[in-house]
Nucleic acid binder design. Sequence first.
DNA 1: TATTGTTATACTCTATAACTATA
DNA 2: TATAGTTATAGAGTATAACAATA
Lengths: 153, 153
Amino acid sequence: MEGPPRTGSAFLLAQLGAHAARRFTERIAELDLKPPQTGLLRVIARRPGESQQTLAAELGTPPTRLVALVDGLEQRGLIERRRNPQDRRLYAVFLSAAGKKLMRSLAEVGTAHEDDLMSALSTEERATLFDLLSRVAEKQGLAPGVHPGYRGS
Amino acid sequence: MEGPPRTGSAFLLAQLGAHAARRFTERIAELDLKPPQTGLLRVIARRPGESQQTLAAELGTPPTRLVALVDGLEQRGLIERRRNPQDRRLYAVFLSAAGKKLMRSLAEVGTAHEDDLMSALSTEERATLFDLLSRVAEKQGLAPGVHPGYRGS
DNA sequence: TATTGTTATACTCTATAACTATA
DNA sequence: TATAGTTATAGAGTATAACAATA
């Protein structure tokens, strides 16, 4: 009785998930991005022209948070705010050309991250792991591509 | 080209890890515990009588953080500080009887948590997943039982 | 002097509430 | 009045630096 093993899959998942998120945070720091910024860029890339309210709902974050987030990315010229002519209260948010270029760098970072993280496994084993994780995620009701917890890494 | 799928295993791991940590946080709230407290209790259970400096190093957290953490658990009667007679600068930290009892409740919570999280998989699939995750964790240099990120859930 | 534990401080991140401008 | 966006404020969590007691 020298302390429980305490390494179920649930614990391993939390441990590996935190590790993966931390490594990814380090990698995107080279692009001068933080996880919430990355998450916002991804949502804008997927649904260009949405209002900030819609983006906030999509990210599961309070609308007030988006203001500073959008401000920062806009000042760096990565995204653009355009007024909606039909309803001038709304902004429509788009990626700029520089933003689209950054998204390509981000995709490369993601690939390198995936390869490094899965380096312990063969191609076949990676497919098995992906299948098992997908089923667990679906059963837990997790929406594909959304990240509750660290919003946006 | 309507947005990348963006669901590699690395992303799934981060997503599921955050989910697992969040669910576990909810469960231990019923025991009036927060993740860092749980992590500290686990370390003390595994290595009773260590100094706060040693516990801090074990958790990978600054020693200053432990003070308030130990204070809170001591005031609830879950752990005990005893001066080390050989070196009166040091405290030796132990679980109280109430603390040991709480650890048993915590073990039950952990089992329920594991069962719920793995409910999508058969017994055999759970073993496969555990094996794959263990190998990924080992290759990534993660110490068994330690939790970088959320320290102590 | 070096080390353990402590206190005080500041910084980051995030959420809540109040304000403006448009509708 | 209702809604989009904004600003201001406050709270939690955490890290850094200075301090007292003991060695």
